[in-house]
Design a binder for these strands. Structure first.
Lengths: 116, 116
DNA sequence: TTGACAATTGAATAGTTGTTCAATTATAAT
DNA sequence: ATTATAATTGAACAACTATTCAATTGTCAA
């Protein structure tokens, strides 16, 4: 049987064999790309940026981002699932806060790449 | 005229008004989310990870990732457009290399978030 | 308990994206 | 010139995703 997907042979098989054992495991690979997928949306970047400044409830965030509560709530759920924010209910409101101290430094690194 | 998209009033208008001036400009916002979009794909993470170890040509990368040259080439183009990799042609081969020293530290920060 | 408000939810839709496939370009070797 | 190999390209398809809309839950006030 031959389950190779690649449609060619390696030109430098020595390099490939040296690099291969250092490649990330499948699980880690998907955790990494899933994390960046969560960051890869302008609405969610805005939410994280805002929550870096202050805790806020869904309605406040909706006004700040000029979006419906529904749209904001959907995206907050994504951030909550990714454990980047946490929420607490106070009366009729639900307040959200950052739940990861890496977010800020990752945003800063990304800003460095972009060139400020 | 009223071009508000949000379907509510702010509960804490003082907080919203304090945070608003610190929000990122539209251009920066999209540069940030576009950058993370590029990182948010397991194939491209693998390519960056591999190129951190060594320059390689498209065929080598295809064998290493067990994908077709076409699929790899398409993704390399995305990375090239994002200025994360550069390429040079040597004979029939095109060799790719990392073109951004931030990639490594951003991956490391992301690994910290995930918890190694 | 009735009415109003905050937030969540699920379904639907429109837009985006990754891989495949077939065709093409460019280089090297015979 | 011809053939073979490396890589790129564009179109097509399937899978995924963000927002909208309507309906629902939960909480407070009257």
């Amino acid at each position: 049987m031959d389950s190779r997907r690649s449609d060619c042979e390696a030109t430098n098989i020595d390099i490939v064999n040296r690099v291969r054992p250092n490649m990330p495991e499948t699980r880690l690979l998907y955790e990494l790309s899933d994390f960046f997928k969560v960051m890869g949306d302008s609405t969610r970047i805005q939410l994280l940026w805002a929550l870096e400044e202050s805790e806020m409830c869904v309605g406040d965030l909706a006004v700040l981002l000029d979006m419906t509560k529904s749209a904001v709530s959907h995206q907050l759920k994504v951030l909550r699932t990714a454990k980047l924010v946490r929420s607490k209910k106070i009366g009729k409101n639900v307040y959200y806060a950052l739940d990861d101290h890496h977010v800020k430094s990752i945003l800063e690194k990304a800003l460095e790449h972009i060139g400020e």
